[in-house]
Design a protein around this nucleic acid. Sequence first.
DNA 1: ACCTGAACACCGTTCAAGT
DNA 2: ACCTGAACACCGTTCAAGT
Lengths: 235, 235
Amino acid sequence: MTKQFTSVWTREPRQPKTAGLRREQIVTAAVELLDAEGMEALSMRKLGAKLGAGATSLYWHVANKDELLELVLDEIWGLVDTPEPEEASWREVVTTFAYSLRVTMLAHPWVAPMAVQMPSIGPNSFRLGDRLRRTFIRAGFTGVDNYLATSTVMSYVLGQVIPETTADKIFEGGLDPENMMQVMDQVGHDYPEMMEDYRNTVPTDATVARAMAFDFGLLCVMDGLEARLRTSRQS
Amino acid sequence: MTKQFTSVWTREPRQPKTAGLRREQIVTAAVELLDAEGMEALSMRKLGAKLGAGATSLYWHVANKDELLELVLDEIWGLVDTPEPEEASWREVVTTFAYSLRVTMLAHPWVAPMAVQMPSIGPNSFRLGDRLRRTFIRAGFTGVDNYLATSTVMSYVLGQVIPETTADKIFEGGLDPENMMQVMDQVGHDYPEMMEDYRNTVPTDATVARAMAFDFGLLCVMDGLEARLRTSRQS
DNA sequence: ACCTGAACACCGTTCAAGT
DNA sequence: ACCTGAACACCGTTCAAGT
């Protein structure tokens, strides 16, 4: 009675070669639609229409909407720039990866929430994961620690970027910052010091502030990893 | 023409005192429904029914579903245990907070994705944010660094826990682990070393492995913060 | 092998009307 | 002040039928 685990990746794509088009077509169209109108706007009907087909045609190529999204997500993992581990020091590889992931997710703001609700077990995701693994092996992380290092970096980047995309979504369409500030004041008036700090630091230049925050935290994480490396070497 | 920013928290609750019930009632019922059946199952109609009311009655107390969710989310922030900064060292406060947030989010698996798509500007969220701020002030983080420290810790925990809840969701209902392993093999067969590592480390005891990963990463983050503290003290 | 349209069982939200 | 029901404009998905 146990459920079977299923995923697009366990199923052969429908027509292996005939014109070689459909699946990629569908995924590309979905990404375009998502970029243009966001997650809430992606419906099977709209996507079908964009492809000049009935909504239900899609169900020939994909079992359901979730599988479509698995495909789309892996497409995005393919955009993240991760150097081959041999090309640079582990700190450089991690830094490049982290920055690239951040840029990619900011460019496709619907990705972060998606990456978080869906298994990432497509080919692009695997290639990336394997590179990070090899990077940390060269750095000296063995056994579980290797896995832990990868997951720490990944967690950090995801955790940092996701709120950024949320904030962008809230502000998109030229939200009046004055109005925003009023709301914040009203809502946070029990914590004047916190509001004061918020006023002084964050909104000077949100883009710069956020890049700085990202940088700061990434340094923390990497310094922390290095500390772990030292203690495990001693023992 | 700029959109206005709105939030439940900018609106007075409907009936300030009369029987003092409704809003809390609605939120409680929503949390129960979410705990029992998950995010996809929460609809205004079902929630209405659970409260013995028409679906549309809810719209008297709440502008729309998103505002309902803002309320629900803040309810959850209220469950996170964060000591007063004076009670302990900053590392202890951060550790308690981080662990408590993790436990809370694992207990309510629908929270993490939600926390990530919605502004958190309710009273409980503010109280928590202010405590972390004061904690880091006592630790010696001044100005922007204080904000950055908070955001680093927060990012780390969110980023770590979110994939955990995703994994739980996938496995819930007693998914056959054998079947899962087969899928992984099939899907990752281009990366035998990675699969090997995965086999050796992760599934021995998933619960323990994940707790370890969390701990490992949290130490990284805190060690990293401490390093930042030292360099800023020197300059 | 691939696509279609009709149909089913849902959604969130609005609004006039009730008490 | 609060709640209702009908109605609108959507969803994802199934399935028999077409080519």
